[in-house]
Amino acid sequence: MSEPEPKWTVAVPAVSARDVSVRRGEIQALRHVSFEVPPGRLTGLLGPSGSGKSTLIRAIAGVQAAVEGRLTVLGFEPGRAGLRRWLGYMAQSSSVYEDLTVLENLRYFAEIRGAQLGGLLERVGLREQTHQLVRRLSGGQRARVSLAIALLGSPRLLLLDEPTVGLDPLLRRELWRLFGELAGEGATLLISSHVMEEARHCEDLLLLRDGRLLAQLTPDELVAQTSTTDMDEAFVRLIERA
């Protein structure tokens, strides 16, 4: 074990992708994608369904097979043991134990991460469901259990795959506020969504389509370049120009 341990520092990009491609079965899910995710910021990964958002997040989390090109997290290969304690990953499917209660799920993941629960259940609005079996929760509530698990132990890098899908607008707004707070506290967040409107809540944007990176820019730059404040329309204009 003489290899250097990953260190969290603002001097290195949190994620760096150079010419990254991923093939999933017959499908080329990502095609020669290159970008850097700056540390300590809230980056939105936006694109329509099937554009490769989940594949990219899985690759960064270190669970996607057949990743070509050079993809690093803090300069290290994704999935390394030393990196995993920094990482909070929320997959698109809930990935929680249905036959345990909300609290039992959180306790288990807290134990294996060596983390405290703190006020996490309040933060994701699940206080009243604490002792309910996950099986009996609605889809949106399950997603929040999954989110709470990803937030355990204040990870430095949060990879959240469509965390706000199917939630009521009020709660969605509160979660985006929470994500902003976490970035303010120094965490790096990469959050995917197929709802273009959510671009407004992000500091940086990665726009994906058909496995290709259309653009990396800020929401203001997107508005300026496309001369529209309608995010859906802005995306369309970007595609037409490309």
Partner: peptide, 9 residues
């Protein structure tokens, strides 16, 4: 859940 566990320590 298995995939998630494998992204933890």
């Amino acid at each position: 859940t298995l995939e998630r566990l494998l992204t933890t320590p």
